[in-house]
Amino acid sequence: MKIAVCIKQVPEGDARLVIDADGISIADADLATEINESDQYALESGLRLAESQGGEVVVVCLGPDRAEEAIRRALAMGAGRAIHLNDPAFQGGDAAATARALAAAIERENVDLVLTGLQSDDAGWAQTGPILAARLGWPSATLIMEIEPEGDTIKVKRELEAGWFQWVRLPLPALLTIQSGISTVRYATLKGIMGAKKKEIAKVTPADIGLAPDEVGGAGRKTRTTRLYVPEKTTGAEIIEGDTATAVATLVEKLQKEAKVL
């Protein structure tokens, strides 16, 4: 089974987000990054399938030079090789533009299965996977919590709302978007990290995958972000100040006398 896994490099969960001078993105300087959480689970699922079914995992990532750090980590975890869509023209895209580029790169790879995360922790579109599937002309299923390969078809468990689930079957090739928590994500071993240095990362430009620069990135997008900002607080908590003991004492008193819940 040949599997492509799409990974996005995103700011670390705890990273301090500084809005860039352009007013629409996060400043790159000193930004701690990681592989998007659900993409880590997608990668883990891909590696497990390749291990149980035989085959290879190709990591596909669209991002600037710094995204190579995320790609190396994926290779260290066990992916066989990587495709890095890295060109200024790819930058600034929305989900439609990103999915078009990813589709063009994956189309050339003859894979049986594409895995993506269900949603990126930065943009949070929750669109790229299914758009990519539509562009490839393949069926897709989202929010996957279990995968059972069955030869030419694949049986998957979808998460629905409020504790409900659903099993569906899809013919291959297909695309799945993986939900966090599907399995336990492995750590990269020292051996894996050493081995990753020798693995191939193919850097591709729009021309390499048969796209014009204005079909991707900022030029190819259908939506435009005009401003990124810290939300104004409308309602919110009464923040209790003071050293720990004082603040806690105040809180307990308020819970007793004001809220009357103790």
Binding site: P11, G13, L17, I19, I24, I26, D121, D122, A123, G124, T223, R224, T225, T226, R227, L228, Y229, V230, P231
Partner: peptide, 10 residues
């Protein structure tokens, strides 16, 4: 975006 930490106009 950013897990609800920021707002964006689109």
């Amino acid at each position: 975006p950013y897990q609800g930490k920021l707002n964006s106009d689109c």
